[in-house]
Design a protein around this nucleic acid. Structure first.
Lengths: 227, 227
DNA sequence: GCAAAAGTGTTACCGGTACACCCATGT
DNA sequence: ACATGGGTGTACCGGTAACACTTTTGC
């Protein structure tokens, strides 16, 4: 009886790299780090880590995120596997890119600073090591796709937010402007957000109603944005 | 000067598994194989293979496809990485699922028979080993997404085909029926297919015009199907 | 003539877009 | 009163869906 014997097959270093998005100052931003080892020491890169022996890709990504921004329950999704044998000059590493969405006011700024992390607007990214720029492009595409199918505010905005904030978030994600009136109508038609009695008066005299996501919001059935 | 030293990090077996789609008998079908080693010997599975030391995931998938259906230039795309440490009972393997589209009349039936491959309609899949059923679900979703953004007939239909055939292909992919008149209008509006002078008379007395894709067709700008 | 598949036409409706307009309020 | 951002209303246009209809041909 033939038994599976995988010993003859090569084993390979497997890593994850995280495209961490946040929304701050009306911009979609990505968290970058100066690489601390040669080659390319000091160049900008995504935060990553190797996958452990008994660890799934998702577990590895969660671990990296915990160590990077100090958060446990983060929305996170596979983007693409990068596996060109020459993608790293020194050694052979296959890396799975992930993207994650975090609220700007919930993560640990101390942890980020400790590793000299910097938030870069998606529109003003520096050159990154290896294929990390490509990872970010792929991640943005995924985020746009997700945002076109469902409301993504829960993961990027504060608990309570105004429709204008949500509108601006979508502007930032798709790098275009959505008409205010039409955007509000669309959101209203989805019937998912809950209007609170509270108003935000920081940006207007009239004050804008604050909205929240329902507790168990998963996804909407209908498309939010045509892509 | 700190140099990258990855020796301390674990190495892992990496594999690819291929969801090979074809269109035959008005059905979308997937190629399955009886597993030839224990555990689960004889159970249905996708065709896969380990990734070589100096091989990208894509190269490994192409190699598997060549060995499986005897074709070189196949449309093929990453689906998702499956990495649960316990996904295979005997050993730890991370597998990248790919999906591929092949014309039913171009692949090598001898090769397929040699390994006892069987084409199963997507609607009548048997239970598969490990997480292979999940791989197929993910692959179908990807295919539907692709087919919603661009015409996929080139990879699944014969060189020349009728609009009814294309209509039926879309019915099979989305597992619903598209109205004949509306579908034809949609295809016409895309202005990508080229009508040949030839007709297919095998399924009708009147005969239906045969169409071809232009040589360098890549993708349409506008959506074909709302999803 | 009739059946069957190919192919065209008609109409109603829904949703997106553009844009004008009203509302509330602090200064 | 007026500027500012919040919020609403309207009119148009294009695409989609449902469905009826015509065409061609073999039997």
């Amino acid at each position: 009886m033939t038994q599976a014997n995988y010993n003859d097959y090569p084993k390979i270093h497997v890593a994850v790299d995280c495209v961490i998005f946040t929304y701050d100052d009306e911009q979609l931003k990505v968290l970058l780090y100066p690489r601390n080892i040669e080659p390319c020491k000091g160049d900008w890169s995504l935060m990553g880590g190797f996958v452990g022996d008994r660890e799934s890709l998702e577990d590895a990504a969660r671990r990296v995120l915990r160590q990077t921004v100090g958060l446990n329950d983060i929305f996170m999704e596979q983007v693409h596997g990068f596996s060109n044998p020459n993608r790293e000059p020194n050694d052979r590493v296959i890396s799975m890119a992930f993207y994650a969405l975090i609220c700007n006011d919930k993560h640990s700024r101390e942890l980020v600073e400790e590793h000299k992390g910097e938030w870069y607007p998606i529109t003003q990214l520096p050159p990154l090591i290896f294929d990390h720029n490509e990872m970010i492009s792929c991640a943005l595409q995924r985020l746009q796709y997700k945002a076109s199918c469902e409301l993504v505010g829960r993961d990027l905005l504060p608990e309570k937010f105004t429709l204008t904030q949500l509108n601006n978030l979508y502007n930032a994600i798709f790098q275009r402007t959505f008409d205010q009136g039409n955007f509000r109508k669309k959101i209203a038609s989805l019937k998912v957000l809950i209007q609170t009695p509270d108003k935000d008066t920081s940006t207007s005299k009239k004050g804008a109603f604050l909205y929240v996501f329902p507790h168990n919001y998963v996804a909407t059935e209908s498309r939010i944005v045509k892509i």
